[in-house]
Amino acid sequence: MTEEKKKQLTVTLMKEKRTVPDEVKEKSKKFVRMRKAIKASLKEGPKSIPQLVEEMKLPTDVVTYYVMSLRKFGDIAVGELDEDDEYYSYELPKK
């Protein structure tokens, strides 16, 4: 990005008017962290939510929320349903 375009960014005007609350900064950090961790884990191969939970040592509902959100954003894809018809696996999207 050129210096000129940077100067033209309207977000700089908003920065003069608004301070970003800490909890918003925290939300952003949390999402970036979770995306990185889930994608890094799925690099090893498809995994189900219980398998991710086991690895990440986080509450199952939190992992479910981020897995479902990442699926919606297209960062991860859905794999197979297990033999017991209980859990799907999730994987990195095939290029």
Partner: peptide, 11 residues
């Protein structure tokens, strides 16, 4: 991706 439980993604 289907009707799943919000607690753990189980059907």
């Amino acid at each position: 991706n289907n009707v799943l439980r919000p607690s753990d993604g189980r059907m």
